[in-house]
């Protein structure tokens, strides 16, 4: 029965109105964060921030953007809890590997130069 109803919907010509408010809200948030990144990178009045702190700011803003893209555009936020964890948990380990090997890179630098 359900399938027949779906087929009827597809051909009845009754098309609902678009509901895109959430999509555009996410777009403006992404655009805002990107503009903020450029301000941190280029604005003369922020030149006093040490590079290390800027990297931390970039990392926070990048993860925020990723969260909005995956959560809203890819709809993961609205999926079942287990699916969210199945995707998220492996990436947390990857993020840990990234941190660990950046730290290791600093150690390689020390071994080469001192």
């Amino acid at each position: 029965m359900a399938n027949i109803d779906l087929a009827k919907d597809a051909h009845s010509g009754e098309i609902p109105k678009p509901n895109t408010a959430a999509i555009w809200r996410t777009f403006y948030i992404l655009l805002g964060i990107t503009v903020l990144e450029f301000i941190v990178a280029l604005a003369p009045f922020l030149m006093w921030i040490p590079h290390g702190w800027k990297v931390v700011l970039y990392a926070i803003m990048t993860v925020a953007k990723a969260a909005y893209i995956v959560g809203e555009f890819m709809h993961l936020r609205h999926e079942v809890k287990f699916l969210i964890y199945a995707i998220l948990l492996p990436m947390i380990f990857v993020a840990w590997l990234l941190l660990a090997l950046i730290y290791e890179g600093g150690s390689v630098f020390d071994l080469r130069h001192f």
Binding site: A86, P90, V94, L98, I102, G105, V108, F109
Partner: peptide, 24 residues
């Protein structure tokens, strides 16, 4: 996509390691 994310992560992790083993 998760497995593809691993591929890209391996490249970006390599970038992080090499970037921080060079002089800034």
């Amino acid at each position: 996509l998760l497995s593809d994310a691993f591929s890209f992560s391996s490249l970006l992790i390599t970038y992080g390691l090499i970037r921080y083993s060079h002089n800034a």
